[in-house]
């Protein structure tokens, strides 16, 4: 558990001051992180890709599964680009790809690997160790799965509106890593 927070924010991202960021976190460009979102890098650094949307009360927690106690190499949680973490979702997966949507109040357990284009429906609890295939859609109370045709459409309109509205109402952390 690192006691120092190292947060690197790329150019164009809007990170609210009220969000809880702990540990070694790298946030890509054009991301939007709402207030009261929590990104906790307990077991190792988290690298978030570009154009991700992390809404209020979303929790991205990188912790080791309890059966693997401290090893030498610190695993890195790499989150791809164009992901959406909706309100109050809890994501503890060990690897996340691109273009995924984690709907409100879903819970993704520790041992899952999410690939690209997946949609985890609202309220679904996934705890079984598995790798979700590309474009998997999980929905319903009993976490039924189906395969979508292709990845979900990125929500550019919403991101644009937010990037204009959020600075008017919240204090922001300044990006500290310039694009090279």
């Amino acid at each position: 558990m690192t006691s120092r927070n190292t947060i690197k924010i790329h150019h164009g991202s809007i990170v609210c001051e009220e969000s809880k960021l702990r540990g070694d976190i790298t946030i890509g460009s054009n991301c939007i992180i709402h207030p009261s979102a929590a990104i906790i890098a307990e077991a190792g650094p988290i690298i978030i890709g570009d154009c991700c949307l992390i809404e209020e009360q979303a929790k991205i927690i990188h912790r080791l599964p309890f059966d693997q106690s401290d090893k030498e190499n610190t695993p890195v949680l790499i989150i791809g680009s164009h992901n959406v973490f909706e309100v109050d979702c809890t994501v503890e997966a060990c690897k996340i790809g691109d273009n995924n949507i984690f709907e409100s109040k879903c819970y993704v357990g520790n041992k899952l690997t999410i690939t690209n284009g997946c949609i985890i429906g609202a309220g679904c609890r996934l705890t079984e160790e598995q790798t979700l295939k590309d474009n998997t859609i999980v929905y319903g109370r009993s976490c039924q799965m189906r395969e979508g045709l292709d990845r979900p459409v990125p929500q550019t309109l919403q991101m644009d509106t937010l990037s204009k509205m959020l600075p008017n109402y919240h204090h922001l952390r300044k990006p500290n890593k310039k694009n090279q």
Partner: peptide, 9 residues
């Protein structure tokens, strides 16, 4: 809106 099935599927 629940399972994202569409007529294009």
């Amino acid at each position: 809106l629940l399972c994202r099935w569409s007529s294009r599927d």
